[in-house]
Design a protein around this nucleic acid. Structure first.
Lengths: 337, 337
DNA sequence: ATAAAACAATAAAACGTTTTATCAATATTT
DNA sequence: AAATATTGATAAAACGTTTTATTGTTTTAT
């Protein structure tokens, strides 16, 4: 009922709140000031235990000027990739005694602005953000005021802000090369139509690799829009399957794309996978049920979360303003067939 | 740099903080006290806008005794079912001006205790909890102190606390009946070995429905443990496939179980699905790639989230201590084949 | 003209912490 | 015995709000 505060304990014991605060923060042995005797300290600790005292983090945050809370702005928590990322960020933040407030943007720039504002009001000590396509101004707005920010999964190349990403270009080349090595000669790409740099890198990796093998054909690139995903994918798949030179490979740039694309492919032609080899960024549960090998890029999600938290913590604890970009390597893996 | 507070604005305009606070909270037209003139009010609003003032929610929360924050304790955010639930809870809480702090328990009772403590320190106004198997004492610890709590997805039947659940028993009977109606006579069940009430209900639904048809056979129930999931499922599937009376149906009690179970089944026998009909609680992405019809129970996730938030809000705003259990109905659906 | 009512604005206390400066008492050194 | 150090404890300010009680000032009613 009546919340027990430091004051409650002080009154109970007939001493000052200072003493209680000092002891409960392990600062009772100050050099020059703020000392509490051994027996008194023990009495305080015991009282706190008995009364089930839990510190009020609002008050502490107000006083200390930090909330020990991270604001996490995610594009879509119901996408497994991001949900996993959120999970690891949280697990790691906890080790620093930090809590995490998660918010969604649904890839909307407007919501991104709104969410950063809401989190600021809650006095988060820093942000980890999966930024939206045109959210750059809102990120800049934060960094300009020296608020700690780490971007994750994606970043704005022109913006000087810390980020944790993977080498999308390299991974994309690698997996495209894998298709080529397996004998594919006409390889389609299904990718989001987006200004986001990581999407461009995935596209460039595919393009450059195919050019190196003299296999590049711009008409095999299908860009789909996030807003009309289902329709666009249907169109893309159909037009790829109708090509004159029958295509023998498709590279999907995300797991959502591969999931939806595979559905459509197999719906149009149950035998499609025996003629067309598929590769993808990120794994999907469906792969394990395909009877062919599907290479995919496995991103190091736990490390990404860990790095992001650590990068942010460094910014928070020191006021080292230098922007650091951590580029992690992704793995090429295969489903079990 | 220097955070702008209500005081900054007051000084800027050479007036009192009271005036600023009143205006910014729309309380400038008090009946008997706390008035601010029209022109002054406008000046304040403009200054606030120009200076990009954002209120400090820590200070406000401290003063008001509420943080406008919900503590969400989830069993596993990287499970799509819970991720979706979290998403909807958040979307809905936002409409009330509430933020959500999400934490994970990984089904561990210890972590559940820890997480509720952490959230309490952060002064959340209430909890929405997916409780763990033996987490009952920690929930009771909260309700005993009149802290608003809503359980979701699962609940403790003996504990008098608000909850949002689906009618697991009914759904389970329904889907079992569906298998029977399609001609299955030897139907296995793969379910978690757990004391959680909703699991028992799922089991009971299956048992009672089969008994009604004179088809019940206890040796077809396989209980797997959360900690050794992969191994236990392999064993369960194998032993079901080896049965004397060849089984012709399997009911998986969760989407994780069906996903892993299907993998194992198809690995053991690629044609398994032509002999054994499968049904499941919750949908999995894999279903769309099976070439047979798979009935599954679709839980109304958005409504669950909405109801939980609304129930919690009522507890927070009024101090209506009465526990309410909302039992939603789940739908029987089919994959597109 | 005066009393009453309405209006505008503010001072100050409070929420629960942390921390600095200060004080008093005891112990240690000269 | 006096001077100095050490120890134990506290008062008070501050963090940024909200809100109540109070004080002036103007307008309206008598």
């Amino acid at each position: 009922m009546e919340r027990v505060s430091i004051k409650t304990i002080a009154e109970q014991l007939g001493i000052s709140v200072t003493a209680v605060s000092l002891v409960l923060n392990g600062k009772e042995r100050g050099e020059t000031s703020g000392r509490v005797g051994k027996e008194m300290a023990e009495k305080i600790r015991q009282a706190a235990r008995e009364m089930n005292y839990e510190p009020n983090n609002l008050a502490r945050g107000l006083k200390m000027g930090r909330s020990e809370t991270i604001g996490l702005v995610i594009a879509d928590i119901s996408n497994l990739f991001f949900a996993n990322l959120a999970f690891h960020i949280q697990e790691h933040a906890e080790k620093f005694g930090y809590g995490v407030i998660i918010t969604n943007t649904n890839e909307s720039d407007l919501k991104m602005e709104k969410m950063t504002k809401i989190l600021e009001r809650r006095q988060v000590d820093g942000f980890i953000i999966v930024p939206t396509e045109y959210g750059e101004p809102y990120v800049r707005n934060l960094t300009r005021r020296n608020i700690p920010v780490v971007l994750i999964d994606r970043y704005y190349p022109k913006l000087n802000v810390s980020a944790v990403v993977i080498d999308n270009y390299k991974a994309s080349r690698e997996i495209t090369n894998n298709l080529v090595e397996s004998g594919c000669r006409h390889i389609g790409l299904i990718i989001y139509k987006s200004a986001l740099h990581h999407m461009k890198e995935r596209k460039n990796g595919y393009v450059d690799e195919l050019k190196d093998h003299g296999l590049f054909n711009p008409s095999l690139i299908k860009e789909v829009s996030y807003s009309y995903l289902s329709e666009d994918i249907d169109i893309a798949i159909e037009s790829l399957l109708m090509k004159d030179e029958t295509i023998d490979g498709i590279f999907f740039a995300t797991n959502t794309l591969s999931l939806m694309g595979l559905k459509r492919m197999l719906h149009a032609d149950p035998q499609a996978l025996s003629k067309i080899k598929v590769a993808s960024f990120d794994k999907s549960d469906a792969f394990d049920f395909m009877h062919v090998t599907i290479p995919y890029i496995q991103q190091p999600i736990p490390e990404m979360g860990k790095s992001a938290v650590e990068l942010l913590m460094k910014q928070i604890k020191t006021d080292d303003k230098e922007a650091v970009t951590i580029k992690l390597q992704a793995q090429l893996e295969y489903n079990k067939v």
